[in-house]
Design a protein around this nucleic acid. Sequence first.
DNA 1: GTCTATAAGTAGATAGAC
DNA 2: GTCTATCTACTTATAGAC
Lengths: 209, 209
Amino acid sequence: MAAKPVKSTKTNKKHGVTRDSILDAGLHLFSERGFDGVSVKDVEAAVGLTPGRGSFYRHFKSREELLETIVHREVERVRNMRDMQQRAVGGSLGDRRAELIMQFRLSLTGLNEIKALINLLAREYGRFPELMKQLRELLVDESQELAADDYAEDIRKKIIRGTDSAALSAVVQSALVGYHLANSYFKTAPGGIDSERFINTLVDLILEK
Amino acid sequence: MAAKPVKSTKTNKKHGVTRDSILDAGLHLFSERGFDGVSVKDVEAAVGLTPGRGSFYRHFKSREELLETIVHREVERVRNMRDMQQRAVGGSLGDRRAELIMQFRLSLTGLNEIKALINLLAREYGRFPELMKQLRELLVDESQELAADDYAEDIRKKIIRGTDSAALSAVVQSALVGYHLANSYFKTAPGGIDSERFINTLVDLILEK
DNA sequence: GTCTATAAGTAGATAGAC
DNA sequence: GTCTATCTACTTATAGAC
């Protein structure tokens, strides 16, 4: 299994550019200017290679392979982060209100964390369906189901309002995502409402009493 | 005032391609493939000109001018539509619940109407700030203030819940926009919740009792 | 692992004939 | 109003020297 010669333990970078530095630069460039707005030349320049000399191709076989690698790495990174946080917050206090507020805060900071990834894929809408699917699973499918289960229990206990826990989960998630995107795309909080005020209003809305 | 010679009443198209047909084609092409994904050649082909011959430039001085004209036309179109609907629904029934449901339905169909425009500008994030500003005014600033006024009155009358009408307006608008975008970008209703179920849950949430 | 050089293609835009 | 022809610039990607 460990048959490869001992060149270096992990990132054998000698003195040149690391694969990771290309991934980092690519994520931010693609996110800011779109896939077509970033030439291989731009990426080379960003990591300190002489622009236009094609040294990029020693690291990735094409511009498209770079994009795929970036998305995959980012999705995994965020999935791990979310799972860790979830374990940390889960049923920590008896106070459901405080717990919801904390959860919504984490949702917003989580969305902020993958801002660049969302941006990147939103730009390339319809062009890389396979990559889009990865984002959907992470952002919608997985997140929403988990919350819906909690809401169902709270509804039984008459802690939160309503009867349709799945729909409630969709409303809450949509509100948080919508708020985040309005902030992100228009660089202004909708109606000038800051995130704490937004979260408080949302929590008041779903809590019974 | 009416000094121009009587060439033709409105769209003097002789027999060639109309300016409007280029705008229509441009909107849909840009929306589907992004600004950089659509060459002048593509636009020419779409309206029946020989691709690659540059006849496009008799109608618009550049590809960028085409984009600006498209956005301006679309924003005006939707603003007019919204204002007409608003007059039609305003205080029509004594039933506030039915009225809210109707309003949210109109919001969602309105968002659907400008799907192509939203798509187009979301792709070019950060590149055409002036055009983005037009969309924000239409979609966030104008819409949200109007709703907030209604909510403030309803809160006084104890018809709807909460104390912060501006924040409530932001939550509602964010939920609707978030729901629309999830549908639009992932081509699947979040959590499999259809729009009527979503709207009902949202209305139940904000109504007192 | 980076450089030089270069191939082959496509883009936006213009001038002028019809 | 459309077509022919063309200029210039830039793109992805490869081959081979160091």
